[in-house]
Computed example of a mutant assay.
Amino acid sequence: MSTSQPASVKRFPQITLDTLPDKDAKALAQEILDISSIGLAGPYNVMLRSPIFARRIKDLLDYLRFNTSLPKHLNEFAILIQGRLWSSQVEWHAHYPIALKAGLRSSIADDLKANIRPRDMHEDEAIVYDVCMDLSTKHKISDDLFDRAKAILGEQRLVDLVAVSGTYMTVAALLSLGNELPPAGAPLPFPDSV
C-alpha cells in the first residue's frame, strides 16, 4: 500500500490570520505561528474555531511541552503513545522527530508504531507506557501500577504524565474531527488508517 496521502478533504477550511474574527484570535494565532512546525494547520486549524478554548488549551500545551516536570523524552513518548493509539497522522508526524531529538531511542518509537509493546525499555519508559496504556485502554490504573509509578516518577511527574497523555488524547480527537493530515507531500505514518 502506498504511503502517499490520499485525496482527503479537510472538514474545516484552513484558517489564516486574515480569516480570524478578532484581534485576540489573531494574536493567539501569531503566538502559535511563532512555535508551531505546522503553522496554523493540524490541531490549531480546528482549535481556533473556538478561540477561548484555543487560548486555554494552548496555554496548557505550552506547559506540557516546554515546562513539564517530566524529562522531555518521556513527555514525547507519552505523546507518541496517544498518537499511536489514535493512529493520528499529524501527531506522529510532528512528534516523532521531536521525541528522537529529545533522546527517545528509535527502537522504542518504532516498536510503538508497529503496535508492539516496546522492547528493552528503561524502567521509567516502561512506567510511562504502562500508565498511558492502562489509562487509555482500561480507564484506570491498578494500585500496584500507581505505587510503582509514584516510586519511579514521583507525584508531580505522575500527575504531569496523566495531564500530557489526556491532553494529547484531546489533540488527537481534534485532529480526527477535522480530518487533518500532515503537510502535503509528507508520508503518512499510518497509511492503513486512512
Rank of each mutant, 00 (worst) to 15 (best):
E155T: 14
S69D: 12
A99I: 01
P97Y: 06
T68P: 06
L177F: 02
D110E: 14
Y63L: 11
I108E: 01
P43G: 00
A29G: 03
L61Q: 15
L48Q: 04
Q82Y: 03
A94V: 15
L158E: 08
E31L: 14
A114N: 14
S106E: 15
P13K: 11
S69L: 09
K101F: 02
V131T: 05
G185D: 09
V162L: 11
S107I: 02
P187M: 12
L17W: 02
E155H: 13
D110V: 00
F190H: 07
N67W: 04
I79G: 12
G166K: 07
P183W: 06
P118R: 05
F146A: 09
F77K: 04
V90P: 02
L61I: 13
P43V: 11
L104Y: 04
A186N: 09
T3C: 08
I127N: 05
D134C: 13
A114W: 02
A173L: 04
L161E: 05
L64S: 06
E76P: 03
K101Y: 00
V162A: 15
V162P: 00
A25V: 05
E31G: 08
K10T: 11
F146V: 03
F146S: 01
L40C: 09
D192S: 13
P97A: 01
T167C: 12
A29H: 06
T170Q: 10
N67M: 07
A163C: 11
G154S: 13
P191F: 10
P183Y: 07
N115T: 08
R56H: 13
A54Y: 05
L135D: 08
L181Y: 10
N179K: 13
L158Y: 07
R49G: 00
L161T: 08
G185E: 07
R55A: 14
D62L: 04
D24R: 13
D34A: 15
K26W: 04
M169S: 14
D110N: 09
V46Y: 03
R119Q: 14
I15C: 01
D144H: 09
G103K: 08
K138E: 12
A186S: 14
D120I: 00
A114Y: 06
G39P: 07
I57D: 06
G154A: 09
L188E: 12
E31A: 13
D124W: 03
H93Y: 15
L74P: 14
K150G: 00
S8R: 11
A29M: 08
L112E: 11
V162Y: 01
N115P: 00
L174P: 00
A186L: 01
